[in-house]
């Protein structure tokens, strides 16, 4: 019974997070400017991190936690580098 409830709510949550990722991708593709695309990419990273955590809860394995941590790290570094690039046209000054 409880596994059923949890299974369905995890499915619902994954669906919502998938839709959220869809919104982020829409902004990523539509632009109109470079900063909008970077913002969409950053949101995509955060949402995929949350999606990985829900997948981890479903499988009961802590392996997904590490993956989520790394996605978060990569998203941070990537967005910072891209914003720096927008500001000056170089990543490292």
């Amino acid at each position: 019974m409880s596994a059923l409830i949890l299974g369905w709510s995890l499915t619902l949550a994954q669906l919502l997070l998938g839709l959220a990722m869809g919104c982020a991708v829409l902004r990523l593709l539509r632009g109109p400017r470079a900063q909008d695309r970077i913002l969409g990419l950053d949101t995509l990273y955060v949402n995929s991190m949350l999606l990985l955590l829900t997948i981890g809860m479903r499988s009961g394995a802590t392996l997904y936690f590490e993956a989520a941590l790394i996605i978060g790290l990569l998203g941070f570094v990537g967005t910072v580098a891209l914003s720096k690039f927008l500001m000056r046209g170089e990543v490292i000054e």
Binding site: S9, L10, L12, A13, Q14, L16, L17, L19, A20, M21, C23, A24, L26, R27, L39, G40, T43, V46, N47, L50, T54, M57
Partner: peptide
Amino acid sequence: VVAGAGVAFLGSLGLV
């Protein structure tokens, strides 16, 4: 889980 995913979805909706 559902509340968190809902909030994240609302945030991304705002992006659009």
